[in-house]
Amino acid sequence: MSDSDDLIDELRRIAVRYGSAPAEVVPTRPDVIIVRAGAVVVKAHAPGADRAPLAERMRAVGRRALYGIMLEPVTEEVGVVEDRLVTVWPAGTPVDHSAPDAAPWEAAARLLARLHTVPVGALPPLPPAGGPARVAAMVARLRGDSAAALVVRRALACLPGAALGRAWNPLPTPAHGSSGRGSLTHGDWHMGQLVRIRGEWILIDVDDLGVGDPAWDLARPAAWFAAGLLDPEVWHRFLAAYRAEGGQAVGADGDPWERLNLPAQAMTVQLTAAAVANAEREGRPLDEVEQVLVDTCQRIVQFRSACHSVPTQ
């Protein structure tokens, strides 16, 4: 029996203890394991995750200020099974992957807007939100020297390092206002970070929750729209719903790109790096969507014309 089987068996035992129903493994991303039993899921977080920041996030996410915005765990406790951190959550229904056109864009926008307006001071201390640091990490995983990989590395080199948590600045760019302390930020938002429970959509996944620039939570749809992948009508519905709910990542009116340009460009670089890495791993040429991302990276390089260096390491 492998270590992974031992881990899954133990997750099943935990799930059954809380969920009182037969346990089954739920498909998810490769570095995470999720086991469901009835109304409960048990999550083994990615290998190497730090316990202290996760414990802080677990303490914060059950607070009243986040009720109805982010899913409250069954228990704040962070368990350890086979060197993996383990948490227990109510089971919800994810957005239907086979019907992306029917995804609840407005509901998501309203939840993000509400999350961003929760005062950081209303919660226990939180670590910096994830997001900015992931960009360079994703590019560093590219192995090949294909034309696409070179474009991705060049685009990364064009982005200001401080905004990505590189170099001397350990924090993401201060969010807004004069406080410079940042806002509550999900840190890894996409359509998979939403489930429906008791008829209501709610945000899930605390792994990157923290203090940061909330514009990064809009970075994926902004990047998809800029690349021409997301239907403009969907983007406008999403942005309008976010603004109508009082979201602070962009102004209530005016040009949203003043705040979105950098996060959306950085996210484009990250998504392109992941796409090119996928194609490399599967030994196939880029598909049309992946090529659109590479083209967008090329335009980012041209747009940031002040950039002259072409590092290839």
Partner: peptide
């Protein structure tokens, strides 16, 4: 834009995962 590729595997993967 290219937003006709609603069933494209890369597009759906990107929409729903980190």
């Amino acid at each position: 834009g290219h937003y006709g590729h609603h069933r494209n595997r890369s597009w759906v993967g990107m929409l729903f995962s980190s």
